[in-house]
Nucleic acid binder design. Structure first.
Length: 231
RNA sequence: CCUGAAGCCAUG
DNA sequence: CATGGCTTCAGG
């Protein structure tokens, strides 16, 4: 019997009604995955496999475009940021050994994210911006080992957030290989994998738009810039 | 190779 | 405000 499977919205399940009845159930936000099958059995197999891989897929992050989110009381919020000054960039150019780079973190406790409890930063020469974003995450996770409260990592880097929440699990399952080319900043990601899997039960992630009125994001941006100034 | 996303810079 | 390059990734 012709069967349609829907996964990922409020209508998740198997349907044997005609497509004209099922199609409206797929037009939702967020968009679901859906597929048609010739038998209910094959639909069930696909559904179970998708569901299993969905369970294996790890936590997502919430996105915040206006910089404002409600902070839970007693929860810790660690803002992270990284940057470099790629002076005199030109076509075909790369990060020079003399380019300054830095990462910074700032730890707050909810619900009032006004005064950081702790800040840290470090400047280097000749490192990439993304390397610094990853370093910031790594140091945030290491700092979190010093307390036991639940905590949230706040970053403005999709590269960092997509990797901690999704890609690094795929890379790890594949023996630390990705679709094409070598994995950048591999050693850092392997350390982060260990730290995140150990603390997963009290860890969440938020993405904020860079420089968009988030006090914590602006704070770490200033911290890493003064770190570069002092280098 | 192309598409997409985010970040980081430089110059005017 | 605008143009242009580099760091990273996934998917087609």
């Amino acid at each position: 019997m012709k069967t349609y499977a829907i996964i990922g919205n409020q209508y998740e399940g198997l349907y044997t009604q005609p497509w004209s009845k099922v199609q409206p159930l797929t037009k939702t936000r967020p968009a679901p995955k859906f597929k048609g099958f010739d038998s209910k059995a094959s639909a069930q197999i696909w559904f179970d496999q998708e569901k299993a891989s969905q369970n294996l897929r790890h936590r997502q992050y919430t996105t915040v475009y206006d910089g404002a989110f409600t902070a839970e009381p007693q929860r810790y919020y660690i803002f992270t940021d990284g940057g470099n000054r790629n002076t005199g960039n030109h076509a075909g150019g790369h990060v020079k050994p003399t380019d300054k780079a830095a990462w910074a973190i700032a730890i707050y406790q909810g619900p009032n994210l006004t005064q950081p409890l702790y800040t840290d930063s470090q400047a280097y020469l000749g490192r990439t911006n993304n390397d610094m974003e990853v370093q910031a995450l790594l140091h945030a996770l290491e700092a979190a080992e010093k307390f036991t409260e639940p905590f949230t990592i706040v970053s403005d880097s999709k590269y960092v957030l997509d990797t901690v929440t999704n890609w690094m699990y795929n890379w790890q399952r594949a023996g630390w290989k990705k679709a094409s080319g070598p994995i950048a900043n591999l050693a850092s990601w392997q350390k982060i994998f260990t730290l995140v899997t150990a603390q997963a039960d009290r860890l969440a992630f938020i993405w904020v738009k860079g420089h968009a009125s988030s006090a914590g994001n602006i704070m770490v941006d200033q911290l890493l810039n003064t770190a570069m100034d002092q280098l």
